[in-house]
């Protein structure tokens, strides 16, 4: 089987599985499925930003929060919920475009810390303002719906999330194989050479930062409608770290890596949570366990599979197949 056919087969299999799986889940498992879906959406954006365009963000949780608050606030004030869901990515992207102008002049660690700072500032602002519900948060966010028909069933949310994730994956795959996508991948290696090849480096960096924020905003919107309650505590810095771990573990610079990484980490965190909350465990056990596992996983992957799970496994499979001098 050659490479594209193999890819399509895997994609078809994954799609079929993700459509079938929700039907077999109970209510609390569906919640995990939906959270997993939103994580895939955010991580796909982060992988585009970090893996393809080479720009680090440790503050992806802030755009997730902006999306959630945008959707939540609009819905609470009686605006159509679908409008809120559409506005969530737009506002998240707008914020990214705004802070991106000064931020994207920075590189590497500096950019990482600056994006982290954005999230800390945003969280403390949200905690201060009255209209956002302060530290207590926003309660009673209506269910997603059109007119009188509302989505109450978690199963329906599972499919909304699935559709959003599919859309985001498709957009990402298309983008990286187009003129702007090649420009992004080029500037990740050398901005100087990319500029000389005609790539408007500054504009592209801002655009990809905004796009990754839009993904996070969309995921945040779904999250707000599904849970019906959000507060600054829903978007801790650990969440942003988690997205980075998912992206790195799955494999940066791949389309499917984020899916693998998000699935693995989400399931692992759930397993640890149930372990940590078993009778006889101390109250701090779940937190300690999940921090420890992020750290351990990150170290192991970076040591043994520095390119992430998917690319490493992929190249191992490829090595086993007939070795040909050219691959086109």
């Amino acid at each position: 089987m050659n490479r594209p056919t193999f890819g399509y087969a895997v994609a078809a299999l994954a799609a079929a599985a993700s459509f079938a799986v929700p039907l077999m889940l109970d209510r609390s498992q569906l919640t995990i499925f939906i959270l997993l879906g939103t994580a895939v959406i955010v991580t796909t954006g982060l992988s585009l930003l970090m893996g393809y365009a080479g720009q680090v963000s440790l503050g992806q949780g802030s755009f997730y929060a902006v999306g959630a608050y945008t959707a939540g606030l609009m819905a609470v004030h009686g605006l159509p919920t679908l409008l809120g869901l559409a506005a969530a990515p737009v506002l998240a992207a707008a914020l990214a475009a705004l802070v991106g102008v000064p931020l994207l002049r920075l590189r590497g660690h500096y950019l990482a810390f600056a994006t982290l700072a954005v999230q800390l500032i945003l969280l403390s602002l949200v905690g201060q303002f009255e209209f956002t519900g302060g530290d207590i948060g926003l309660r009673g966010i209506p269910q997603l719906g059109v007119g009188d028909a509302t989505l109450i069933d978690p199963l329906a949310y599972a499919y909304v999330t699935l559709a959003a994730a599919a859309l985001v994956l498709l957009v990402t795959r298309n983008l990286i194989k187009s003129r702007p996508g090649r420009g992004l991948r080029a500037l990740a290696s050398t901005e100087v050479a990319a500029e000389s090849a005609g790539v408007p480096v500054g504009r592209y960096k801002l655009a990809v930062f905004s796009l990754s924020a839009a993904y996070a905003g969309l995921a945040g919107g779904i999250y707000a409608f599904y849970l019906g309650y959000i507060s600054p505590g829903s978007f801790p810095v650990l969440l942003s770290v988690q997205f980075v771990v998912m992206a790195v573990v799955g494999g940066l610079g791949t389309v499917w890596g984020p899916v693998v990484g998000a699935t693995l980490i989400t399931l692992l965190v759930q397993a640890l949570n149930s372990l940590g909350t078993m009778p006889g465990m101390p109250a701090y056990a779940p937190d300690v366990l999940s921090y420890a596992v992020y750290a351990l996983l990150l170290i192991l992957v970076l040591l043994f599979m520095p390119r992430g799970l998917l690319p490493s496994i992929g190249s191992r499979l490829e090595d086993r197949r007939a070795i040909s001098p050219t691959r086109s």
């Binding site: 298309n174 990740a188 090849a197 005609g198």
Partner: peptide, 28 residues
């Protein structure tokens, strides 16, 4: 000064930026 992680053909295709226009919307 090459673009790593991209094939030879893709590297060369980046050069076409100068005479093409399509952006993020059209590409995505």
């Amino acid at each position: 000064r090459l673009f790593r992680g991209m094939t030879v053909l893709e590297n060369v295709m980046v050069g076409a930026h100068t005479w093409t226009r399509h952006g993020f919307w059209s590409g995505a």
